[in-house]
Design a protein around this nucleic acid. Structure first.
Lengths: 223, 223
DNA sequence: CGAAGTGATGGAACGACGTTCCAAAGCAAG
DNA sequence: CTTGCTTTGGAACGTCGTTCCATCACTTCG
């Protein structure tokens, strides 16, 4: 036992998990641009070299942090409800995780086949098997659902990055819509001009859910 | 007229278009990581300051370059064929553009509401209006299609970035699948384990098209 | 109980990047 | 020719990811 004299140096051992947790705190508090090895060093009262002893690179750290959040978000049970509801629950779990941590969306959209994506892919696929989807169609159907997540993730996360951590999203979208109405020529972009007003009023979560409904209806029609 | 003595300084004027074209060449030849203001300066035989006189920042340059490629890819006519075929044509045009320039995919997935995305969004929406989609549903339906593009874009582009400009994609996917079979525990990721073998054989373009079919079938079912 | 070894630590240093700054050069107007 | 404005290009700045290495704490063995 080393109860007292263990000095002040390394009272808590600086493990990979500690680094990941600190990264989540920095990312949530100040956004993805704020996560640097210098900020991390300061936050952990250590040097960059010590961090590199536990983590190979920044991209490896980002995938680990992303997987941490996604794994925590997928704690829904998947064998109790009917399969279609299970899929909806998983999809919304991921959306809510991105909503709570916009940097997760950026990371999911940027890195292919990273552990977090595999986790989502598998989870969606498992729920999809319970439907009467033929085996040759399961891959395409699961991919469509996952791509929908990733597409929304990229746009949503990037939007949140532009607005800042606490800005009003509907105000931001209203500004975008206003810019459409002025900058964008109505004759060049007729569809945009017509739905510009809907943009500021729409609910991202509802739109995401509508997309899920669309894909599920397509699966039901084509299976 | 200044036909001869125009000297060596101002032989060709270094305009914004010249910079965009040079950027496309660098990106296509060496990937997105190769596009730096130093490489651009060398390629154009100038200095960084001169470039900044025509372009505000690197991200502005990237959005301009992306819009250039997407605008060139959307030259399909949209008023001659039946609307559903028009949508398929637009979707595949964008996919093929991303296939030819993987960095476009990364950029599309990263920046929200950039001009290139608006261009795609409007084009899909215009074609969608010709279907019997009720007005309140057009926004959600168009968003689902665009999100599908963006989701695929991010994954596909990032995959191409990992493999390099000329590597064999199916070989890369085979390696990913092999890693699934070994690293990923079959009991933890049952669906992935079962589908791993399909990954190396699948055709990305066909899978993208299957996703489009899925969403279109969903639109037809819900409208 | 002390010596030797091993992994962890943290800070300095490196190269590359985006961006800014500024002096020189071209060109148009008086 | 002179004056003023735009364009040019290269030097310089600050920050980043990453590498390197001297030092330290702790275990293991004689």
């Amino acid at each position: 036992m080393k109860d007292k004299p263990r000095a002040d140096r390394r009272t808590n051992p600086l493990t990979r998990d500690v680094i990941v947790q600190a990264s989540v705190e920095i990312l949530d508090a100040a956004g993805e641009r704020a996560l640097t090895f210098r900020a991390l060093s300061a936050h952990l009262s250590t040097g960059a070299g010590a961090i590199y002893h536990h983590v190979a690179s920044k991209s490896e750290l980002l995938t680990a942090v992303t997987d941490e959040v996604i794994a925590g978000a997928l704690h829904h049970g998947d064998d109790e409800v009917e399969p279609e509801q299970a899929i909806r629950a998983v999809m919304l779990d991921v959306f809510d995780a991105i909503d709570a941590h916009p940097w997760v969306g950026a990371q999911l959209a940027a890195e292919p086949w990273q552990p977090a994506v595999l986790r989502i892919f598998n989870r969606v696929g498992v729920s999809l098997e319970a439907l009467d989807v033929p085996e040759g169609f399961q891959f395409d159907a699961t991919s469509a659902l996952v791509h929908h997540i990733l597409g929304v993730a990229g746009q949503y996360a990037a939007g949140a990055r532009l607005t800042g951590p606490d800005a009003d999203r509907s105000a931001f979208l209203g500004a975008v819509a206003a810019q459409w109405a002025t900058t964008v020529a109505a004759d060049e972009y007729p569809f945009l001009a017509r739905i510009a007003k809907m943009l500021s009023e729409h609910d991202d979560r509802e739109q995401f859910r509508a997309g899920v409904d669309l894909i599920l209806a397509g699966i039901a029609a084509l299976r």
